[in-house]
Each structure stands twice: as structure tokens, then as C-alpha cells.
Design a protein around this nucleic acid. Structure first.
Ligand SMILES: [Mn+2]
Ligand SMILES: [Mn+2]
Ligand SMILES: [Mn+2]
Ligand SMILES: [Mn+2]
Lengths: 148, 148
DNA sequence: ACAATAAGTTAGCCATGGCTAATTAAGTTA
DNA sequence: TAACTTAATTAGCCATGGCTAACTTATTGT
């Protein structure tokens, strides 16, 4: 129907592809990251993490949690025998720690910037998974400069 | 195995649920938002938007695009007859405009903050879908203050 | 100890968003 | 016009992450 679309900006196309690919990749890790972070929190708070608690915090049904835990187990981030409580592997603990740190960095950055703490907590839950190392460092620098 | 998990922070639990629910909701709109924005760009650049071009920009196979376009059509954001080029409805055009604006706000904010423009573009592609109105306004204020 | 309750799992459904292979339609060129 | 090439669609596969209903296991209280 129209002209054959010459390529005036072929360069930029490949960059854009990489961006979208990154977003898709990030989406694949999101659940994993939120789960390990939450499991670590629950263990810290209650001494153990149960599917029930996870379901309650996430606002999903228990079978959904069971299914997702199977993935975490497959990826060797947790140890979990049926009907027993959930343990983090070393790798899981490590991932949890870095997710937690990143999460807090994003929250504190937003607050330092002037966002209300409720909204900061809210937005951080999604933003955290899409922040690259470089950006994270800029966030950190800004927040610590502001709070000192 | 452990104690019955009393509720020392029941209040916070519901907030957390709302946060995770928001993230899940945002994920459902992401593809729609990125597609309409991209379609608008293509129409602006080339005069028309074809599945081929969309596939190329996103880095996915053409049948994936065909399938997702069916959803956009179902949601009345585009008009699309088989083998013809894609049109945005009024609603689609409106959504595209606001996505584009939000996208640019996020990019410009990150750049103003000190993130390199490549990384800013990269991170914005994901972050944009998780920024609330309040945060967006803070971003905008910061960027315009910085650039003036 | 055992009945009742709560927690966890399994089975089976749905929508989404990827993919490849095969087919059909449109557009270009000899 | 007919052949060839390119674009688009369809069919059918997979993984993920939701759900409900039904069943099993553990825990608790009498
Ligand atoms: Mn988090
Ligand atoms: Mn999160
Ligand atoms: Mn965008
Ligand atoms: Mn995007």
C-alpha cells in the first residue's frame, strides 16, 4: 500500500531491539526476584517462610505459589520438601540480599527525590527490576548526597 | 514446624498486596502500550505501520506480532484488515500520545540525573510502565528545573 | 488418640506471549 | 501476464503465571 520503507535510521533499530529484549528478560526474572526477597523477609520476621504467607503477601492463591516455588527449586534458589518450610540456598540468599538492597536503594532514591513514601514503595516494586547498574549507582549517589 | 506466625504488621501486608497487584496489572498493559507507541512512531516516520516493521523493532517473529495485534484490535486501539496496514483508532492515538510523552519524560529525567543517554533510553523502556502519576510529575519537575 | 481445622499439593482450566513450519496474499519484475 | 519474492497469516507447539475444585497431609485441641 505504501512505499517500501527505506532505512533512514537503521542504526537505532538494533539498539531498540536490545532494549525490548532486555525488558523481556527482566520480566522473566521478576517473579524469581520478588519471591526470594519475600522469602528472606519472612524467614527474618517469623523464622520460617510458608507458602501460605507468600500467597498472602503477594495477593495470589496458594496453588500459584506452589507452582512458582517449583521454578525456584528448579533454579536451585530454594530447598523445599513437600509440606515442609522453605529454605533458601546460598545462591538464593545471595540473590535475596542483592534484591533487597536494590529495592531499598530505589525506594530511598524516590523518597529523596520528593515522592511520598507510600508511592515510593509502590513504584519501587516495579521499577527495581528495570534499573541497570549504572542507573542504580546514580540513584544511590543522589540519595546519599541528599540524606547526609 | 514453627510458631503460628502472629501478625505484628498486618497493616503493611495489605499495602504490599496492592503493590504487587499493581505490578501485575502494569505487566498486562505493557505490550499494549509499547505497541501503540511504536505504531504511532512508524506511521509518523514512514506513513504506515506494518507487522514486519513492528517485528523488526521489537526483535520478535512476525507471527508474534500478528497475535498481539489481535489483542490491540480486540481492545479497539487499532483498525486492521488482513494484509492491510495498521491504523490507530482515536483511543489508540490518545494512548500512544500519552505513552510517548511519559516515555520521553522518563528518559529526560534519567539524563538530567546523570545517567548516560544510551542507558537512559534502555532503562526507560521498562521503568515507564511502573511510574505513577505522582512520581512522573516529580520526574518532570526535576528534569525541567535541571535543563532550564 | 482422634476429630476437626488449617495448610499444602495436584489436576486441570485459561490467557498471554514467545516460537517454527506451512500456507496464502500482495507486490515486483521479467 | 506469469513467475518470483516478500509479507502476512494460520496452525500448532511451549513456558509462564494466574485461577478453582478436589484431595492429602500436618497441626491442634479435646
Ligand atoms: Mn522488591
Ligand atoms: Mn518487585
Ligand atoms: Mn515506551
Ligand atoms: Mn516500554
Amino acid at each position: 500500500m505504501m512505499k517500501p520503507h527505506s532505512n533512514p535510521a537503521t542504526r537505532a533499530v538494533e539498539d531498540q531491539v536490545r532494549q525490548f529484549e532486555s525488558v523481556r528478560t527482566a520480566h522473566q526474572s521478576e517473579i524469581v526476584e520478588d519471591y526470594v526477597e519475600l522469602i528472606a523477609d519472612l524467614i527474618h520476621q517469623y523464622g520460617s517462610a510458608r507458602p501460605k504467607d507468600i500467597a498472602e503477601r503477594l495477593g495470589v492463591a496458594q496453588p500459584t505459589v506452589t507452582k512458582n516455588l517449583a521454578r525456584l527449586k528448579r533454579e536451585k534458589l530454594i530447598l523445599h520438601e513437600p509440606y515442609r518450610s522453605i529454605q533458601l540456598t546460598d545462591e538464593g540468599r545471595q540473590l535475596a540480599a542483592s534484591c533487597r538492597k536494590r529495592h531499598r536503594t530505589v525506594v530511598e532514591f524516590l523518597i529523596a527525590l520528593g515522592v511520598s513514601s507510600e508511592v515510593a514503595e509502590h513504584d519501587a516494586e516495579g521499577i527495581e527490576h528495570h534499573v541497570s547498574e549504572e542507573t542504580l549507582q546514580v540513584f544511590e549517589a543522589y540519595a546519599s548526597r541528599r540524606e547526609t
